[in-house]
């Protein structure tokens, strides 16, 4: 798809999904989904259980191949093999940090492998943001589930992605953790694109625009 807008919108970050559909094996999850989003407001993806919220986020993160349709992130960047890897980060309850590594080692690995320069100060500030700066050198496997969720958030925040995808970010979190999510979402919305997938009413309040997966049921 080549439209004239690509040149006009030079430099302006834009995530665009066209006519997305996904089938697992022969079972169709959703079809005909289009969305477009730019920095500024938060996009919230809602939908009943099994409607494909997490699947959509994985596709947008480039972790899952859509059966139909395309995902484009503009302005396109040359060089890197995958279109989305390195520019998008997804935190989800099903994505765990490495239990045998410490918090600092987890963040360092994630940044090194993505090719971003991992300054120790960046690692420290990401840990401080989620309130775990005093646990930097402890193995993540010893953490509680709420603390593990904070580790997931620290990882994606440290990567400073252009597009931040959060799947149920308040999973297992306490009140303080919910404030933390709000802060992360608001910061990201100012800098880049932020998409949330949730059915939690309080999380959904952060949204400016909404997509309901139930509209694209197969």
């Amino acid at each position: 798809m080549t439209d004239g807008g690509a040149a006009a919108g030079e430099g302006r970050l834009r995530l665009q999904a066209t006519d997305l559909g996904k089938r697992f094996g022969w079972r169709r999850v959703f079809r005909g989904l289009c969305l477009e989003t730019e920095p500024g407001g938060v996009l919230v993806v809602r939908g009943s259980n099994g409607s494909g919220k997490s699947t959509l986020l994985r596709i947008l993160a480039g972790l899952l191949r859509p059966t139909e349709g395309t995902v484009r992130l503009e302005p396109a960047r040359e060089g890197s093999g995958s279109l989305l890897r390195g520019r998008v980060a997804l935190a989800a309850p099903a994505i765990n940090p490495y239990a045998h590594l410490t918090l600092a080692e987890n963040i360092r690995f994630f940044l090194h492998a993505r090719g971003s320069s991992a300054g120790e100060s960046g690692i420290r500030s990401a840990a401080a943001l989620v309130g775990l700066d005093d646990r930097l050198d402890e193995p993540v496997g010893d953490f509680s589930s709420g603390m593990t969720q904070r580790v997931r958030l620290a990882l994606v925040v440290a990567a400073q992605p252009e597009v931040l995808l959060l799947d149920e970010p308040s999973h297992c979190l306490d009140e303080d953790g919910r404030r933390l999510v709000r802060e992360i979402v608001e910061t990201q919305a100012r800098r880049g694109i932020c998409i949330l997938a949730t059915n939690d009413a309080r999380e959904a309040e952060l949204g400016e625009r909404y997509v309901s997966m139930d509209d694209y049921r197969a």
Binding site: L63, R85, V88, A94, I95, N96, Y98, A113, R114, L155
Partner: peptide
């Protein structure tokens, strides 16, 4: 351990 998606995000 459910770390596959983290690795897939991190490296090509």
């Amino acid at each position: 351990a459910g770390t596959e998606l983290l690795l897939r995000q991190a490296a090509s």
